[in-house]
């Protein structure tokens, strides 16, 4: 019985970031890099995966050291851990995915200050075991990747008519504004409203049920 309960809660931890507590559309965290790097699907996927990687690794490590770190020095300790993983990801991307590294540029080092990572370290990894922290990092990371990818696909499609560089409709139908910050705000606003609507519908169903 307790095994079942543990399985369900682990599944809940993993899936929380997908829709219910999606870091972008529901918690509205880390919007600056999300809006800036979602100009096309490739950049968005790269940024999403880099952030997810850092999130998973930092959640695991912070959960491992949570009992060793005194409360008053936890923030500098967590920041140091997160900054180290970001540096590692930055070095790996420079060595193995040069073009993506050049495209994402400034926003890779800035993953350090992405509130999603610090937020999950503080709210979850510092209070839970390694497995659950891993699942939380993975779930939130996938939720973030999915959200930024959705934005990237939409903006690329409506600005230049392609998805991952594959032509869907002629470029002349493109709306250049989608490439610019106003386009990013419009698209994210639309998706936030959609996610809110889906959450409300699910809530109402539960109440009626």
């Amino acid at each position: 019985m307790s095994d079942d309960k543990s399985k369900i809660s682990s599944l809940n931890v993993l899936t929380a970031g997908f829709i219910r507590q999606n870091p972008t559309f529901s918690q509205v965290l880390g919007l600056c890099p999300t809006l800036a790097t979602s100009t096309n699907a490739e950049n968005a996927l790269g940024m999403g995966l880099a952030t997810a990687g850092v999130l998973v690794l930092s959640n695991i490590f912070i959960s491992m050291i949570r009992k060793l770190i005194p409360d008053v020095i936890r923030i500098p300790a967590y920041i140091s851990v997160i900054a180290s993983f970001v540096t590692i990801v930055n070095l790996l991307m420079h060595g193995y995915t040069y073009q993506l590294w050049t495209n994402l540029g400034l926003y890779i080092p800035l993953i350090v200050v992405n509130c999603i990572i610090m937020g999950r370290a503080e709210a979850f990894a510092s209070k839970n075991g390694i497995l659950k922290s891993f699942l939380d990092g993975l779930g939130m990371g996938l939720g973030f990747t999915g959200a930024i990818l959705l934005l990237g696909i939409t903006r690329e499609l409506f600005s230049v008519g392609t998805i991952f560089g594959l032509r869907i409709w002629p470029k002349t139908y493109g709306m250049f504004v989608m490439m610019l910050p106003p386009g990013a705000f419009l698209v994210i606003g639309f998706y936030m409203a959609f996610f809110k609507h889906v959450t409300n519908v699910r809530k109402n169903k539960k109440v009626k049920g």
Binding site: I69, A77, S80, V81, H94, G95, Y96
Partner: peptide, 27 residues
């Protein structure tokens, strides 16, 4: 505790730097 943490971090970063030095130069 902070010193120990920084030593662990420094060793980890140094290792990754050495591992990625050649691929970065190649890229």
């Amino acid at each position: 505790i902070l010193t120990m943490l920084m030593i662990v971090i420094a060793v980890a970063l140094d290792s990754v730097y050495i591992l990625t030095k050649k691929p970065i130069a190649k890229s």
